[in-house]
Design a protein around this nucleic acid. Structure first.
Ligand code: SF4
Ligand code: SF4
Lengths: 162, 162
DNA sequence: CAAATAGGGATATCTATTATCCGTAATAAC
DNA sequence: GTTATTACGGATAATAGATATCCCTATTTG
C-alpha cells in the first residue's frame, strides 16, 4: 500500500507555488522541468489540484497555476486528498456475511469493530496531515535549504513565471 | 491506496483463533470456509502471520493455526504489518535531486520536510493501530454480536478444531 | 502406510498506477 | 487577426501490484 508518486509531486509543486508573487502563474512545463518529472503526467496531478479548487489557472502564454489561497489556508491533507482521493484506505468486504452460522436475514447493524478500528487509524493519519499547513512546510524548508540554493531556485521560477 | 483484502482476512482469523481453547489448532480450510474466502489465497495471509511469529502451526491432520501468545499481547499493528509489510506508505523519490539549480555534488542531509511530515502521519496511523489489542477487539465483538450467533460460531469452530 | 496439513514456488488473471499522445478551447503576445 | 502557448480532458498503452489458482514437498496424525 503505497501512495502515488503524484502526491509527492503535488506537495512539491504547491511549495513552489507558495513562493510565487501575487498574480503570477507558473506553467506545468516549468514545474515538470524543475522537478524532473514527465510534463504530461504531472499535468494530471495539477488538474486534480485544480478540480479540488486548491489552485487557480489561466490559459494562454504566461498561463499556468497559482495557489487559490494563502499557504496558511492549505493543509497537507487538502493536497493529499486532491491527488489520492478521499476514500478510506481500509475497505470492508463484509466477509462476516459469509459466516455459515449467520441466521437467515440477519442484518448487520453497520460496520463491525474491525472496520471501525481501521477507520479510526485512517482518521489519525488524516488528522496529522490536516494539522500541518503549507506555510509550516515553507517555514521548515526555508530554515533547512541552503540560502544560496533557495535564492537561485526562486530566481529560476521567477524567470519562467507568467 | 487501499490495503489488501488479506488484512481484513487476517484480522478476522486472529479474532477467531483468539477464541480457540488452549492447545487446539484450526486449519486454513476451516478458516477459509468460515469466512467464505479462497483457501489457497487465505493460506498466503496465514503464512505471513506465521512468518511474523504471531501464530504457531502444526502439520498433519488436526493441524492448523493457533495464536502464539495471548490476545492481549497481539496488537492490530502486528497483524496489519505482518500481512501488509512494514514499509512506509509514502516513498520519497527524491525529486529535489532533479532541481536544475542544485549545486554539483550537493549532498542532501537526510529526508526533506515533505517526507518527514508524511512519515509522521504514517506513524500516527501505526500508533493508533498499535494502541488496539486483539483482546480489545474480542471485548467489543462479544458485546455487539448477538449471543446466539456468537455461540453457534464458537461451536462451529470447535467442531473443526484439531 | 494413508490422509490431511502447512509451506512454498510457479503461474495466471485482474486492477491500479504510471505514462504518453492528441484534440479542443481559451488566452496572451505580436 | 494571427500565432504561439497554455490548461484540460479523453483515449490508450505500458508497467507494477494485488488477487487467485495450481502443484509439489515435508511433516504429522491415525
Ligand atoms: S467484520 Fe467488520 S471488517 Fe469484517 S466484513 Fe464485517 S464489517 Fe467488514
Ligand atoms: S523534497 Fe522531500 S519528499 Fe521530495 S524528493 Fe526530496 S526528500 Fe523526497
Amino acid at each position: 500500500m503505497i501512495l502515488k508518486s503524484q502526491v509527492e509531486w503535488a506537495l512539491h509543486c504547491c511549495a513552489i507555488l507558495a513562493g510565487l508573487p501575487e498574480g503570477r502563474y507558473l506553467s506545468t512545463k516549468a514545474l515538470a522541468e524543475f522537478h524532473g518529472v514527465p510534463k504530461e503526467y504531472l499535468s494530471k496531478a495539477l488538474q486534480s489540484l485544480s478540480q479540488a479548487g486548491l489552485v487557480h489557472t489561466t490559459l494562454g502564454p504566461s498561463g499556468g497555476y497559482r495557489l487559490a489561497g494563502t499557504p496558511a489556508e492549505l493543509t497537507f491533507l487538502d493536497i493529499v486528498e486532491a491527488v489520492e482521493g478521499k476514500a478510506r484506505t481500509f475497505v470492508c468486504n463484509n466477509i462476516r456475511a459469509n459466516n455459515p452460522c449467520r441466521p437467515q436475514g440477519y442484518c448487520e447493524s453497520g460496520a463491525c469493530a474491525v472496520a471501525r478500528v481501521m477507520w479510526e487509524a485512517d482518521e489519525a493519519w488524516r488528522d496529522k496531515l490536516r494539522s500541518v499547513r503549507l506555510s509550516d512546510l515553507i517555514d521548515t524548508l526555508a530554515k533547512e535549504i541552503p540560502a544560496e540554493l533557495w535564492k537561485s531556485s526562486f530566481e529560476w521560477v521567477l524567470e519562467r513565471a507568467g
